[in-house]
Amino acid sequence: MPQIVTASRLADGVVVFLDDGGGWTERLDRAAIFAGKADSAAGLDAGRTAEVRSLVVDVYAVDVALQAGVPVPTKLREAIRARGPTILPEFTKPGSTPAQVQEDDHVSV
């Protein structure tokens, strides 16, 4: 199953994802996608380095399924963590749902 690597940003606690450039993004749709557990090990190593540098805390890998190009976590806890509280739609995180990405695509970036 594909995986992404996530963490919490140290300074503000915001949920972040490892991106393709080895940096950290708040946008789920820009997370680096690893083909499986074996591949995400390199991402976890990068995460641990960032932990040592006090950029992020609590690094771990999350199983995802691709939906319209967005890696959506398969477990409810991780899906809510990536997307925001289900009770407050106004706090839905940008880039966290396939619908939002399609909208962005339509507007054309």
């Binding site: 919490s8 606690g13 915001v14 949920v15 609590d58 806890r77 809510i80 963590r81 509280p85």
Partner: peptide, 16 residues
């Protein structure tokens, strides 16, 4: 972590 918690600061799902 211990100092953070002793001052009421937890790390939760979305943020501190």
């Amino acid at each position: 972590k211990l100092h953070r918690l002793m001052n009421g600061v937890y790390l939760q799902l979305h943020a501190y």
